[in-house]
Design a protein around this nucleic acid. Structure first.
Lengths: 243, 243
DNA sequence: CCAGCATATTAACATAAATCAGGCGAATCT
DNA sequence: AGATTCGCCTGATTTATGTTAATATGCTGG
């Protein structure tokens, strides 16, 4: 199985890929595995041999604070095309757990191929580096959202971001998206109790901004949702540019 | 002026540097500028030509949400040796403002040298990449801290982290540190009102965990502070390892 | 069809943090 | 010295969020 075309499109939206780059990417062998909702894609620990990317479905990163901590926190969400685990290629140890949200197909790439890429394809290396930098930019946006937004606006911000990211890879359109997260999981993502998340969902419904049944969301008033959430897609760095 | 030895030590704590790597790093010319408290080191905008690192003093990253947002948020703090702005080498645009906290000397590296490095020194490239990955790991820890900790513990976590990072570069020791942030600035970092930060400081004082006068902090009970903050230095990735 | 379970929802109450209002003390300026 | 500014500190009140408890709803397996 070859490296997901989703990821190649992820890169192509942001920079031009030459024929040699494309060939090098497509030559990387991967192993694809299927996961069910809640399953662990990668457990924390040192010396990982693979990094992984999302082919299909959604996945997330569960970060646990050390010692007797109240609960883990979801610090990132990944959609198809996201190379979700490049970090562990350059870090000694990442003690986050990667898990599937809903059914998901994940591709695993052995680090030897990334190492080879970093030795012989500097342009691609910069693009992989860019992918981790975009992850970090999303982290910063989440930090800012958590600091400045109240629960409803905070939840709205998440919906705007995920819709934008899903739409960018063609998995969502027409202001409809599937978000395979329980309210309990939204709570540990946004940093609220699940009851409070429920209040926030109700608030957005009452304002007629969206319909939300189970995992299916329909955004009824995108401009107003964006305004409430102070959302702008800039930080996702979707623009095409030489790097 | 050559690339700061602090940054070289930052790398050496985490991996071995060969003679060629060292020579390549030391050959990079930099320009050093002095900033006063509150001054802008780099303004947001596209097409930056330089990245910068902290030689002396402290600096931070101010992230502003778009359009009529309540306030900016401090999403990162940088200490001597931190290559604080590698992001903009690989990203099209970073709309964060970099500013000095207290007097600070900052080194500027032209992107042409980073480009050269990424073309010809894959091992060093991976290490720079690692530096941005560590930044991202710190972001995730801040996200987790913001979600799970109450004000006092959250503030305690920040103090633990900054002391650990300052001590790692030899700028702090004996459980004493200088933190050139006003309570107002701590508030926009932690996501509280400054009045509430004041209460958190008082709480830590009342518990006899630290003395805090102006910008001078003395940690009186490190183990208890660490326990309260659920702090562990793991995420700073200080361990030495091949990458 | 029912029992059993998990999730969503709501209400009532408790706590945390924001906001409002103001006082204190040190540094600076006139 | 007096006035001003700024950061620190504190109490009173309001708002946001957490907690507990209970009900509803939708699924699954018998």
């Amino acid at each position: 199985m070859a490296l997901t075309e989703y990821f190649i499109r992820y890169l192509q939206r942001r920079d031009e890929l030459g024929a040699k780059d494309l060939a090098a990417l497509r030559a990387i062998p991967t192993e694809t595995l299927q996961f069910q909702n809640g399953q662990t894609i990668m457990a924390p620990g040192p010396d990982k041999s693979h990094s992984c990317l999302v082919l299909d479905g959604m996945a997330g990163r569960l970060h646990t604070m050390p010692a007797r901590v109240p609960r883990p926190v979801i610090t990132a969400l990944y959609v198809p095309g996201d190379f979700m685990d490049l970090h562990n290629f350059v870090l000694a140890e990442v003690d986050d757990r990667l898990m599937a949200f809903g059914p998901a197909r994940i591709e695993f790439v052995h680090h030897r191929y990334l190492l080879d890429l970093s030795e012989n394809h500097p342009h691609l290396t910069r693009l992989l580096w860019m992918a981790t930098a975009i992850d970090a930019a999303v982290h910063r946006q989440w930090l800012a959202a958590a600091s400045t937004l109240r629960s409803s606006a905070h939840l709205a911000h998440l919906v705007c971001e995920i819709y934008t990211r899903l739409a960018a890879v063609g998995v969502a359109s027409d202001h409809r998206l599937t978000l395979p997260l329980l309210q309990r999981e939204l709570a540990i993502l946004l940093g609220y109790s699940s009851i409070h998340v429920n209040r926030a969902v109700r608030d957005l419904r009452d304002r007629k901004l969206l319909r939300w049944v189970g995992t299916e969301i329909e955004i009824l008033d995108w401009p107003e949702l964006v305004r409430l959430a102070h959302f702008s897609a800039d930080y996702l760095d979707l623009e095409r540019r030489r790097r």
